[in-house]
Every structure is written in structure tokens, then in C-alpha cells.
Design a binder for these strands. Sequence first.
DNA 1: CTGAAAGCGCTAACAA
DNA 2: TTGTTAGCGCTTTCAG
Lengths: 334, 334
Amino acid sequence: MTIKDIARLAGVSVSTVSRVLNDHPDVSKSAKEKVLAIVSEYNYIPNTSARELVKTSSDNIGVVVRGMSNPFYTQIITEIGSMIEKAGYTMVLQQIGISDDEIHTAATMERDKKLLGLIFLGGQLNYTKEQVCCINVPFVCCTFNNQYGNLDEEAYSSVCIDDNQAAYDAVQYLYKEGHRKIAVLLSGPEDGSVSQVRFEGYVRALRDFGIQLDEKLIIPIHSYNIADAYEGMNIWLKQGLSFDAVFAISDNMAMGAMKALRENGKSIPQDVAVIAIDGIEASEYMNPVLSTLCQPMAEMGKEAVKQMVGIIKGKTKHRHILLQTKLRTGESLR
Amino acid sequence: MTIKDIARLAGVSVSTVSRVLNDHPDVSKSAKEKVLAIVSEYNYIPNTSARELVKTSSDNIGVVVRGMSNPFYTQIITEIGSMIEKAGYTMVLQQIGISDDEIHTAATMERDKKLLGLIFLGGQLNYTKEQVCCINVPFVCCTFNNQYGNLDEEAYSSVCIDDNQAAYDAVQYLYKEGHRKIAVLLSGPEDGSVSQVRFEGYVRALRDFGIQLDEKLIIPIHSYNIADAYEGMNIWLKQGLSFDAVFAISDNMAMGAMKALRENGKSIPQDVAVIAIDGIEASEYMNPVLSTLCQPMAEMGKEAVKQMVGIIKGKTKHRHILLQTKLRTGESLR
DNA sequence: CTGAAAGCGCTAACAA
DNA sequence: TTGTTAGCGCTTTCAG
């Protein structure tokens, strides 16, 4: 069933069918009715590939999301989606697996969907010019930036929190409560991800507060998984090291760690205080409620689209915005 | 940058380029090298639309997933993906929003991607023949079936747990522990979703055990959200009704409810026992750990693909499989 | 208001 | 081993 079949069945030309399907004005009411009748009778659905192939432009903004179902991104995507729509554009969402290549995905989308621009949600902080040279539309990085890469600042936009400072603040909260033996739960430590930046904030805070960095208190998980964090913490606890607080670089990892702590007889926050960064919904339902520095998800999404649209319209240049985190007090802190 | 440009730049014809790009055998080594060099020099990426448009067949199996980031589906998708690959097919994944029309999405995909078959992950239990008539390839429903619809059994396959029985079992666990005032947390009660089936199992169990159904103990949430469950439970608790157990039709809802219970001074499981159905990862990290009837996610995915492939190859007919749940004991049960 | 026809970028006969 | 060419299904000038 193609547009030709519909045209034949309705007794009109393909162009008339096309006009009806695309809501063009210059179609007689009778022709329109005839076509629509046939279309619905035969459940005709136009072929997307053919449509996209023939179009020379679109109002599409691509969104490439790293991680199939990271709850942290869900809220941001919702916000991005509604902002894009409000601005009169169309969102084309592409979720990719943890090991897929987002640059290649983006480049493919750019050509296939005739994108006006791209928003990356999650990704590496170390893209190089050579890697992104195949992307020919403006892009904005949401929740991360290029601090370990070599992109020119004028070559892309970004919206994220100051991850280093957030980690610093988290450690400071612990410090103020009298904690001095602060373990850190991270993915890296040097994996070029946001984990690394946060770890650097942790190190900086310790130094500022006159605490000696203790290698033994660094717990690398090698993923952001809740289960891996649980496992990792469990194994680490077996060493019987002395510590009175845990800074997890993500809520998810904190959640895994909390279970391990509990099972090892450590009560939170009496024996061990826990703080993290992110502010995902699930961590609010923990018992005790996780204390964490929340990323302003809605604002991030909104800002990313604002930047994107400004650049598409030629009204603004690439910018790099740092948003404030906000402490959710929770119960895992004394 | 199109295939023509590459052909010109490499000094060969478009068909040669096409052959190289598609790994066809009859290409001289020198031609292949020339083409590949140009391709990588110019970062050429073939246009997907054009490719799909021209192909008359594919080895694609479509997977339509309802709900952007339902953690419950993530594991199943992973399994489905690897099983499809193992069987020599290609998975085309499409996630849709909670209010999108999966039938229409499926029909569109079927034509655009030349699908051999479709797997639905989550969806309504009440599709009618008229609704699905636009789908012309075999499909299997994963995690649900058509018990509220009018499809012929031979018209589709399904893999799911016996939701009615699972609910029955859950209530039975509570009953055996001596609970008689069992509240139920559901989305419906009559929303044509799996919530309804599970509610029916609850009702059946009460009847079998000689417990009078108490309308006041039915807590409708109108969604599967954790936050809505928390809210709903909170409001419901204000009524001060007497009850000693909660059966939540999903883990997510149980998680929301547990927080509300805690905040209202009810300790779990001493004051109120909680049981649910699903077995998502997050509920394992609750404190207390949620007791729940786990769906065999990996097995479900595996079985769905097995059915699909069998039908595509013409080796099997449509079947309807019920899988067993397994109790995760947890700590929310006495 | 309507139709004929060109062509989007690609693959796959078919011919050489 | 290679090139020529006919479409895939659609949109969009351009005529009428």
C-alpha cells in the first residue's frame, strides 16, 4: 500500500494525496474527503524513509541519551521534550547503550533526520576535535562539558552543575559534622567521566580542610550500577578499615552502599554518614532518606533547549552554563 | 556528501561504492581501499532512509516498549536484544511514551523497517481485532496478554506470568502470616491494565479465605508512579482505618507506600506487612527489603524471542505461555 | 484546484 | 570485476 495505490483508489493524483496527507491548503473539500476515506479504509501509513529522503530540511532537534534507562535523565528528557515543542521544533530522541558511540549516532541522525542541532544527554568529557568533526550542526552538552577534551569553547554549548564544587560541598557538609575519615565511592578514579571531576572535588576539599588523602578510603566501582556499588562496598567493608562517612559520587552508588553498610551492622547516620550527588527520585524513598546534592534537572533541560534554539536562530553564541545544586537534607546525615 | 560524491572522488561507480559499503564479495582490493580511504577521509555516512527505502526485506524484529524508562523492562530488553542477535536477526527498539499509541507505532515500524515480526513489551490487555488489523506481521506480547480483548488465540503469542494467580499467592502469604485486614494498592481498579488482573486475584483470594472484601481497603493510585503511590497512601492513611498488611500490585507502588507508612509511624513488618509483585532491582535496596513475587525477566525475554523466531521460520504456531513467579522473601513480611 | 514529472540517496539487477 | 540504470515511496516545483 503506497501513495500510488491510494491515489488510484481515490481517483486522484499522487500529488493530491500528498497534499491531503500534509495538510496543504489548496485541495478541494471533495478530494480531501475521498482521499481520507480511502486512507482510513486501508489503514494507509506513509513510509517514513521516503518522506525523510525527499525532504531537504526539517525542524528537528536531535537528543542523544546515553544509558537506556537512567532514571536521572528521564526528567530532563521530559523537560527537553516539552521545551522543544514549545519552541516550535520537533524532538527526535535516540537512546543508546552504554557502549555505543554517541558521536557516530549523532552524525547519522544529523544526516538522516536533517537535524538543526543536537543535544547530548550524558557522555564523555574528553571528546577531541577530531572526534566531533563529523558533526556539522551546533550541539549542546547537557549534564557534562568538555573539560578533559580539547574542543574550543566557541564550538559547543554546555549546561551542567559545577561537579568539582558539588563534590567539594558534599565533603564540606561531612566535615562540618565532624567527619574526618571520609571514604569515597566512585566509578573511576580516572575514567574521563563525571566521576573523575567529582573525585577531584573530593581531593581538593580534603586538602583545604587539612585532611590527609587516604588511598585506602577510595573505593572504585568501575560502573555506576547500584548492584556493583553494593558488591564493591561489601568487599571493601571486609577490610575492617576505620571510617565515619561515605561520599558517593552518585545517588545510585550511595543506594547500593547503604544496603551494604546496613548488612554490616553500620547504622546510618549514627555510625556512618552518607552523602551523594544527583537527587534522583528513588533515593528519596530510601530509609533513611539519602542526603544528596540535587542537580536542577528541569532547569538543565530548559537551559539546554534555550541555548540550542538561540544558536539555531542565530541570536546567541555558544555558552557554558554552570547551574547550582541544592542540598536535599535527607536522613543519612547527622 | 552522498554515495555519488564518494564514487566520483574515488574514481569508481556508485555500485562499487555500494558494494564496498555492504561488504559484497566481488570488489577488487584496490577499489575497496580507494573507496574506504575516501569514506573515512570525508566521514561519509550512508543515508539510512535511502537504504531502508530501497530494501524489500530485512532481518529486523521490532520491539515496542511502553514507558520511557521503566526499570522493569530494562532487563527484559537486554535479554531480548541478545537473543535476537543470537538468532541472527536485528533488533529495532522503539520506546514510546505512556500516552502514545503502540499499535500505530508498530504499524509504522512494520512498513518503514520491513519487520519480520513484533514484540510488545507492556501494553493494554484489551486490544480488539479492529485495532490490530493494521499489523500484518506476527507479534508476541511480552509481560501481558489479551484477556480483556477479543483477539483470536491463534492470532498472536504471549509470554507472561499468571498475574491473577500471583496476586492470589501474594495475598495467601499475608493470610498465612495471620493478616486479615489487607489493603490493596492498585492503579485501576478497572483500567484494563495488568493492575486489574492482579486486583481480581486479590479479590479471589479474599473470597477463598473467607475474608470480606472491604471497599475502604482499596487504594486506587491511577498510575504506577512511586510518588503517586506515596501521596495516595499518605492521604489514605489520614482516614485512620485499621489494617495490618498491604498488597501492592507493583514494586514501585510498594516503595512509595513504604515511605508513607514509615512517616506515619507504622513499622514494617511489625505493624504492617507489605508484599508486592514484580521484583525490580531497586526494591531490593529498600530498608526493609521488599518482599515480592519476582517475574522471571530474563526467561520472559528469552521465551518471547523464541516464540517470535519459531513463528517467523514457520516452525511453530502462536502459543500462550505462563511463567512462574518466585518469592523474594525480603524483610517486609513477618 | 489538480496532475505530471523530477529527483531525494541508495541497492540490485543487468550488461559489459 | 565494474558500470549503467531502474526504481524504492514520497514531496514539490511547474504547468495547466
